[in-house]
């Protein structure tokens, strides 16, 4: 269970990105975070593995305080939290396999991995992860030679190498077309259902939110303005969604006539 308590983030320039945010995520949930551009979704997700240092508040994971962890403890926490990014964040000039293997860095001996040496077991694991994502044949290509959808699958494979209990996904489909969006979210859903990996995911499109989420929180200007269950969100009309989300809400498959979302 992940408990976020009174989380506040103020950037050095004074921007208040999160204001007293509290919520709880049960193990095995598929939590979707919605909100306008600039509402603090990325900030919230990055505070959880402390890529961004929270200003105030606590994040408890099964009772352990992530915000109080020292460097070594934090590394041990981080390796159990996979992360998937909107722009995939692959090392473009490295091979797909190297990118996937990087997911093991928290587990291997640092001085060995520095020379790009990984145990044979990890290599097998990496190939297996790629196979699972259906791109095993791409293993030895350079990462930037792959299509967007393939790159995001490499990103997920890298997260899988961490044997994570949580996956944080920051707009994982925002740079992909609708068909790919469904297939990538389908992959995440499968991991969520088959392996019980908790997923925290920010999304923009109502139909995707309705289709995949088990829980939803809505952010506006750094504050939680909506909390809902799977049923709540399924019943939600476009108008309600617009009210939480703002005027620019839209569906990936069309249906909401709004302008292009943020």
């Amino acid at each position: 269970m992940l408990e976020v308590k009174h989380l506040t983030k103020v950037y050095p320039d004074g921007t208040v990105a999160l204001k007293d945010v509290s919520f709880t995520v049960e193990d095995g949930a598929f939590l979707v975070i919605i909100g306008l551009s600039g509402s603090g979704k990325s900030t919230l997700l990055r505070c959880i593995n402390r890529l961004i240092e929270p200003t105030e508040g606590q994040i408890l994971w099964d009772g352990e305080d992530i915000t109080a962890a020292d460097t070594t403890q934090l590394r041990h926490i981080r390796r159990k939290i996979g992360m998937v990014f909107q722009h995939f964040n692959l090392v473009r000039r490295s091979s797909v396999l190297t990118n996937v293997l990087a997911g093991r860095l928290g587990y291997v001996a640092p001085w060995k991995s520095v020379l790009h040496r990984f145990p044979a077991r990890d290599r097998e694991m990496a190939l297996l992860a790629l196979e699972r994502m259906g791109i095993a044949d791409q293993a030895h290509k350079r990462a930037d030679e792959l299509s967007g959808g393939q790159q995001q699958r490499v990103g997920i494979a890298r997260a899988l190498m961490q044997e994570p209990r949580i996956i944080l996904a920051d707009e994982p489909v925002a740079s992909l077309d609708p068909v790919l969006a469904h297939s990538i979210l389908g992959d995440l859903e499968k991991l969520n259902q088959e392996e019980g990996i908790t997923v925290l995911c920010s999304l923009h499109y109502l139909d995707l939110v309705q289709r995949y989420s088990t829980h939803v929180i809505g952010l506006r200007k750094g504050e939680i303005v909506y909390t809902g269950s799977r049923e709540d969100i399924r019943r939600m009309s476009d108008d309600e969604f617009k009210r939480i989300y703002g005027e620019t809400a839209q569906r990936v498959g069309g249906g909401l006539e709004g302008s292009v979302g943020g």
Partner: peptide
């Protein structure tokens, strides 16, 4: 590009590992 940097950091890698995996390939 800072993207790969935060991705590698998020895996629980040490600072040296981040440099070797995320920085070095980009600056070669």
């Amino acid at each position: 590009d800072p993207g790969p940097l935060e991705a590698i950091e998020a895996t629980g890698a040490t600072k040296l590992q981040v440099i070797m995996f995320a920085v070095v390939p980009q600056v070669i």
